[in-house]
């Protein structure tokens, strides 16, 4: 009987030691992966004149509004923006929204975007030559960013073949079908927006706020994610992670912007 108890005792001690080892290994492993939580001003402070910045979002959804507000207040000029659209600034929405705040404030010198139909000011500046805008088909734009982040040299797409968009671009014929050769796109900094992060920077998204964000997270030297909430490691199931924390450098908690509150 005593022998049996001793054996059980021994097993429990071994188990306890084993648990401690796991804990200490986990502590050592996870510490470098804990992402700093910074202020929107600190995030915006990384942008200097001439910096190329990717901004996540599609229309109202998935936009890092709080960081954009800080960038607006910081006033840095000559920013090169890569984003899906020019957001809203039109007779229906006269107060500029998101990246439109930077455009109207004349902080943006060039843009690679897909759509500016809801930003009358951007269209006017474009027609007067006050801003350099390169328009890409949206599927081409997202794939350029994806290849930029995935270490590829470009890709071939049928989009835009036999249109004016094809001019000044290389075309290649594969099995009798014509494709446009598109080049990868990267940025110095990407400001993205997610719903929840854990301390390790693993991200999940909500609704149509996902859009370009997981792609941009792969294609910039510095990637900062604005999120609604930061939870302890373990609270986001690894099966549900969309953007793994290895892509993320820092986290910002969303602020009081009215659109941030609604998205």
């Amino acid at each position: 009987m005593t022998d049996t108890l001793d054996i059980i005792q021994g097993c429990l001690e071994t188990l306890s030691i084993f648990k401690q080892i796991i804990r200490s290994v986990a502590d050592k492993m996870t510490k470098p992966f804990i992402k700093p939580i910074i202020t929107p001003e600190e995030a915006a402070g990384k942008v200097k004149e001439g910096t190329t910045v990717m901004l996540g979002g599609f229309n109202y959804g998935g936009v890092p509004y709080t960081i954009i507000d800080a960038l607006h207040d910081q006033g840095t000029k000559n920013i090169r923006v890569i984003s899906v659209d020019a957001s809203h600034c039109n007779p229906k929405v006269p107060e500029p929204v998101g990246v439109a705040r930077l455009i109207v404030n004349k902080q943006v010198s060039s843009m690679v975007i897909s759509h500016m139909g809801l930003n009358a000011v951007a269209q006017e500046m474009f027609s007067k030559g006050e801003i350099d805008i390169e328009l890409n088909p949206m599927g081409t734009l997202v794939e350029r960013i994806r290849t930029g982040g995935a270490g590829l040299g470009g890709f071939l797409t049928p989009t835009g073949v036999n249109t004016a968009y094809e001019k000044n671009r290389q075309t290649i014929e594969i099995d009798g079908k014509k494709f446009i050769l598109e080049r990868p796109l990267r940025a110095d900094i990407a400001f993205i927006r997610a719903y929840k992060a854990d301390e390790a920077g693993n991200l999940i998204y909500y609704g149509t706020g996902r859009n370009f964000n997981p792609i941009m997270a792969t294609a910039a030297d510095i990637v900062i994610a604005e999120v609604d909430e930061i939870v302890p490691i373990g609270e986001i199931d690894p099966n549900n992670v969309v953007t793994p924390g290895i892509f993320i450098d820092a986290l910002v908690i969303k602020g009081g912007n009215a659109y941030a509150a609604r998205t």
Binding site: F58, N59, Y60, G61, V84, H88, L118, M138, G139, V142, E143, R146, Y205, Y206, G207, T208, G209, R210, N211, F212, N213, P214, I215, V242, Y259, R262, T263
Partner: peptide, 27 residues
């Protein structure tokens, strides 16, 4: 609620059996 919108920015919903995807998958 602007968390689920259409491409024009109008609020919508997702029906049972539906899904959300990123733009590379969408395109």
């Amino acid at each position: 609620d602007l968390r689920v919108i259409d491409a024009g920015g109008a609020p919508i919903s997702v029906l049972p059996g539906g899904a959300f995807v990123s733009s590379d998958v969408s395109f």
